[in-house]
Design a protein around this nucleic acid. Structure first.
Lengths: 186, 186
DNA sequence: CGAGTTAGTTAGTGAGTAATAACTTATAAC
DNA sequence: GTTATAAGTTATTACTCACTAACTAACTCG
């Protein structure tokens, strides 16, 4: 396998591991094991653990943004907003995306590595601007949209089951996705 | 100082440290230093690191619930809801409460310690039920209320400055609190 | 064929960390 | 005063973890 392909599979593994156990809770050993490669080899492909996390962070934002872009292809205004909501509901199926988002939020809060915090902030506000651009939403609508998204993230993180009252007003798309998520095993 | 008083100050220190750097990112050494006590002595007061985190988690939910209770004293319905929103806006001033909430969400997601995850879920849905009970809100209103709350948590975690577009629709209480928060140094 | 390059390995190091054991003060009771 | 108890300490251990150094097997190209 070429170094570039290997790097790609390392990013995916890092993404999964960091999403589930966070930066400090994830050992490079765990990532290497998931890739199926020796732990020291990671440091040939990436300069250090932080670089691994950074790459996983980029991937997380890329996936989220791609979801919004794909969902709204050729749409605008209210249609685009509905499509995005639907797209985000489907994102739940990939639990790791939402978990990684949560990990990024707490990672940004930590004082170590201000450059990373700044990066996460910039990408997140980038999402905000993208949604505004595609939908032409008001500030109130944006707040509601992202508020709902963040609530979904929390419900998924907490592992609140789809039948729970907390999911009641969140739309069938979400509920179905959450139910499918619960059915999955890893 | 009595063991009970010491235990209280340890909980406060643990709370602060865990809020800022998470479970795995916080050493018991760091907590002990903040208390002003030797690291091994923590293990006289608490059986282990997990117990420290658990105590900090309880404290976090207690503080949040107490805020809601105090804000809504003698109120109900729409008045209670507004009072809670205002109360939550003031909570921002204690950044550690919101950060700790975020840490709890990701901690609940981690597969290690299912008992802790269950505890966090139970306390969180407890908050949900409390708000519903006090305000008599519909599911839609509850979703909007908690969604907004979770968005605020994320904005604070990310360190989005109060002048940013993301705060636009979040009410003057929030904006003033966020501005004061930014002015603080630690 | 042989020389270099690419994709990996095994072995090891130094720092940090949760937890334990054993010792030390100080206070209060009798 | 002596004894017991409560509140701490210092020293240490066993372990994990990020990262480095040094080596190796396979492929490529002149």
């Amino acid at each position: 396998m070429s170094a570039e392909e290997r790097r790609e599979s390392v990013v995916r593994a890092a993404y999964t591991e960091f999403a589930r156990t966070g930066y400090h809770g994830t050992s490079t050993e765990a990532i290497a094991r998931r890739v199926g490669v020796s732990q020291p080899y990671l440091f040939r492909l990436f300069p250090g653990k932080q670089a691994l996390f950074r790459a996983a962070a980029e991937r997380c934002f890329d996936v989220t943004l791609a979801t919004f872009e794909k969902a709204t292809e050729g749409l605008s205004g209210h249609d685009a907003k509905e499509a995005m909501a639907e797209g985000y509901a489907k994102l739940i199926l990939d639990r790791d995306v939402l978990l990684m988002q949560m990990q990024l939020y707490v990672a940004a809060a930590s004082a170590e590595n201000p450059e990373l915090s700044e990066f996460i902030r910039r990408r997140w506000t980038g999402l905000w601007d993208f949604v505004r651009g595609r939908t032409g939403s008001t500030d109130e609508e944006l707040t509601h949209f992202f508020g709902t998204g963040m609530l979904i993230n929390v419900l998924v993180s907490l592992g609140i089951p789809p039948g729970d009252r907390c999911w009641n007003a969140l739309g069938d798309d979400c509920k179905i996705a959450a139910r499918e998520l619960l059915a999955l095993t890893d």
